[in-house]
Amino acid sequence: MKIFVAFLFVHLIAGILCSEADEPKNTQNPEMLFGTYIDMLRALRLNHLNNYDEAVKQAVIDKCKKNGGPKAFDDAKESLLSLQNSIDSLIIDTVNQVQLVGSESWNAQEQIPRLCNTFITVLNSTKLALNSVRPCLDEAESATANIMYNMRFAAADSVCGNNGSNLISFYTARGFECIANLPRRECSVQMPPRDNSTVLTDGVRIADAPWSYERSYPSLNECKSIRTAKICAVERLSGCEQPEPASVTTSVYDAIEKAAGCENILNAEASSAA
């Protein structure tokens, strides 16, 4: 299910934790934060249809016209392009600000709430872009798109809610430096086998196409994958000197599980197995 590909903060941390690099990195906390923030913004851009061949593009256009009428494709394209341009401009402004102020003199207590407020504003804009795409989707696809957005918002709210208190805690505990320098270790649990049972309904079902959502709700196997990723991340983060990196990551994963409906799915599976 493609909606589980990007979980913003958690996904980016997982990428660092799964890095093949074994040697410690001379990475400063501010630099890691800025890099993560910019990657989080990029994750909201959605992929551009120009990344796909003409057959896929035409399939998307035909689907939009079929489900939403003759203007559906153009309206969706315009809305997504506007979102992408806004995010690109914000990334440039952020880079310029960092260069102007300098990471060494950057105050986390003052700046993290500002970054979080900007990020939530952009995330809300992605909801408007999603609504512009909705006429191109059938009912089941639209429901799946809602889950995708709810998961993203839950993760962002967990990180940035209450004026970014969780992110401030993670940052001041030097969480970014910790995860960049932790040695690799085996996880106590293994990822479940890849779930290949999802049936792709037509030629538009291309991974991460900007308005392509598989017609399915989270499966038990997908929910187990999220739970396993949480366990493995927290196990490794337990190697940090302070507990905040592990506790913050746990709370974000918990929010994602709940938003996806995985909490109920996994609890039901555990009850039936008892």
Rank of each mutant, 00 (worst) to 15 (best):
S219W: 00
D208M: 15
Q190P: 03
E139Q: 11
I206T: 13
S125Q: 13
L137M: 10
D138T: 08
A143K: 14
I226K: 01
C187Y: 06
N124V: 06
D202S: 12
A180D: 09
A108S: 14
Q109D: 15
I120R: 08
A154K: 00
C178I: 03
S225M: 13
S165R: 07
L123I: 00
M191A: 14
S169E: 14
F176T: 07
W106M: 04
I179K: 00
L128G: 05
N131M: 11
T126F: 00
L200P: 08
P113R: 01
A155F: 02
A209G: 11
G175P: 09
A154N: 01
N181Q: 10
I206Q: 14
S105P: 06
N181E: 09
I120F: 02
T201N: 12
N150E: 15
A140C: 11
D157S: 10
N107D: 15
E110D: 14
G164A: 11
Q190T: 09
T201F: 07
K224W: 04
L128R: 02
L220G: 01
K224R: 13
P218A: 12
S216H: 06
A180L: 08
N166K: 09
C136W: 00
L115Y: 06
E141R: 06
L128S: 12
A156M: 06
N150D: 15
S165H: 09
T118W: 01
C178W: 03
D157V: 08
N131Q: 14
A154R: 00
V204M: 10
S197W: 04
N162P: 03
S125E: 13
A180E: 11
M148P: 01
N163E: 15
Q190W: 04
N124A: 09
A129T: 09
E110F: 08
P193S: 08
F119M: 09
S165P: 05
Y149G: 03
T118C: 10
S132A: 15
I226A: 01
N166L: 07
Y213L: 03
Q111M: 15
G164D: 05
K224P: 01
G175D: 07
E141P: 05
T201G: 08
